[in-house]
Nucleic acid binder design. Structure first.
Lengths: 220, 220
DNA sequence: GCTCCAAGTAACTTGATGGTTACTTAATAG
DNA sequence: CTATTAAGTAACCATCAAGTTACTTGGAGC
């Protein structure tokens, strides 16, 4: 009672929270339906706010979309920075992350389809993040974890391809594997495959010696 | 003059041609904007026909979309059957094909984003085509071109990933490579990388011996 | 030639959707 | 306590796009 508490028990108005509600609802809606497919009314409904507030906070649909992208970007970049380690673990890890965070993969996919060849949202910071990623690959090359013969950019592109593709093309994955991408059995199997397959990035000298899990039982 | 030619110099009505015009226009529009983004008016305009005809031939937008998908499917399947050879060439070939036929990649991408987890369009024949593809991989395994240790399904998924990803995510490719996917220099470079990288699929015995192009100058 | 139907046209309807207007009300600073 | 302004609401509007209506016309078969 003595403290000058500013916040009422349950404040009727909470701009910060409202903003967040809108963003989170918009993320889901945009990830699910893309920019054109997303309905402003649906976002408002999901967020349980009046549609007018959406325009109050974000101006229009496009601005909201950019804000959603920007937010997700920064979250993912933060995640990316924390990770290190050898490609064998890294491949499996990023694959699992992609399977978990399908919203992210789908946003990138929508972005890809909107692509005009011009600058992309948040281009500057994404360039920087990519550069840091390439630098980490070079480090691993100098440590002998990744073959120095390979162009780091191509290595990165190959890794992204291998980790994101199943989440990005669930229907093709299902046709090929006979299992849904979300099926844990598929995810385990695939993670195991990627760990094996990661040896492709290793220098030829260390390649076979590191394959502790496979006793080269090639026959028949 | 003597011949009972049925076709006038330029027949004013040509149902077959009209149908084809609509389909080809629809392919472009759907590939460019997706189902929701595509405008029936735009398709009609591209095809230079009256919008009403589109409904005459295809019933509605969704049916038209299915027809477009079905057509492209069968064309691609025909192409897929013709190809054989070792993975080194195959990877590069399919990568180049994906870069050329971006409409195809984009259609698959739109399909992926619409995906409900249920049956996909033309599922039956696509299953069959996939099965044939897997069979070809097993053949190559028995010939020693692909490691017999690897699960054919995972091999196929990895190959699809590596070949389709750049065309599917041009913006990420540009961020990583610093070049547009359509840039011939990128395509050449990438094809070369994939040829090298294809050794990852080969049995460990033959792996290094086949790398004729790289004298293993690993240093610094 | 004439008949009939598929092929074709122009103009319209209907519903959805992004965005706005005009208003009310909670919270905060002075 | 009160003035001010940000937060919030309900109802509305303009536009656009899918799909229709109601009509005309070319041409193959008789």
């Amino acid at each position: 009672m003595a403290r000058p508490v500013k916040i009422a028990a349950v404040p009727l108005r909470d701009p910060k929270r409202t903003r967040e509600r809108i963003l989170s609802a918009a993320l889901k809606e945009f990830a699910a339906r893309g920019f054109d497919g997303a309905r402003v009314d649906a976002i408002a409904h999901r967020a349980d706010i009046n549609k007018r507030m959406l325009y109050h906070y974000f101006g229009n649909k496009e601005h909201l979309f950019r804000e959603v992208l920007r937010l997700k970007m920064s979250q993912r970049q933060a995640l990316a920075e924390t990770l290190s380690g050898d490609p064998a673990e890294g491949l499996a890890f990023w694959f699992e992350t992609a399977c978990q965070d399908t919203d992210w993969v789908r946003l990138l996919e929508w972005e890809a389809l909107q692509e005009t060849g011009k600058r992309v949202i948040d281009e500057k910071s994404r360039r920087a993040a990519t550069a840091r990623g390439l630098q980490r690959i070079r480090q691993r090359q100098s440590r002998g974890q990744i073959s120095a013969e390979l162009d780091p950019r191509h290595v990165m592109l190959a890794m992204r391809s291998l980790t994101m593709f199943p989440a990005a093309f669930p229907q093709l994955t299902r046709l090929i594997m006979g299992r849904s991408v979300s099926d844990p059995r598929f995810q385990r199997e695939r993670a195991a495959f990627l760990k094996k397959f990661a040896s492709a990035f290793q220098p030829s000298a260390t390649r076979n010696s590191l394959k502790t899990n496979l006793p080269v039982k090639q026959q028949e």
